[in-house]
Amino acid sequence: MTTGSTDIARTRQGIYRFLGGALLPPDAKQFDLLAGAVEVMNDRDIDQFAFGPAWRRLGRHFPIDVAADGLDVGYVQLFASGIAGRVSPPTESHYRVVMRGGEIAEFVAGLQGEYRSMGIASVGEEEAPDHISTELEVMSHLCDREASAWGDDQIEGVKEVLDLESQFLHQHLTVWIPPFHDLVHACDPLPFYLDLVDMVHAFVVHERDYVNLIRRGMVE
């Protein structure tokens, strides 16, 4: 098993994609794919990272029968209709704007502008740009670019992508995921969603530190 920079970037890319997929409205086919991904990711030395135990707890839920395990209903309750009157919307604008009494449109438009400046023009056309799955998918895309740059030995390219990753983590994910995580816990959802949100929280907090470490440690 190799643990080079390319492999680590690919692992991180896979985790972002996995988490983004798991946070979409549950679909049996999608969850079958995720179950397969768990098997693959378990071979990628994830215990070397602090989020390893959170990943293990999440992985144990798979395979999942979406209907029988009540995920479809649980998803709507947690993120839309509410559990005992509590809802935890999976969108950044709720935590950054709505809870502070601001205007969503300006925030979302600004986010789309950021995506365009990263060279990701398509985001936001079909899905909410500030939905957690979208933002995790954006990070997955950046990790993909990073892995390619490592593979091509393009150190400047790596640095450039790491800057974008760091910026997005600092300005978005690590700002709103911790309060989102706390709100989900307060809603007392299905154990799967508790473990899923724990993993997202552990992962993005780790990513912020880890990406910074790589940036600072990079030399030609």
């Binding site: 190799t2 643990t3 080079g4 920079s5 390319t6 492999d7 680590i8 070397q48 990272f49 602090a50 490592w150 593979g151 030995d153 150190i155 880890y210 470490l213 790589i214 440690g217 990079m218 030399v219 030609e220």
Partner: peptide
């Protein structure tokens, strides 16, 4: 350690 070309093959563990 620092990240360099060698870490393409073996990145240090945190």
């Amino acid at each position: 350690h620092v990240f360099n070309r060698r870490s393409l093959f073996r990145a240090p563990r945190p």
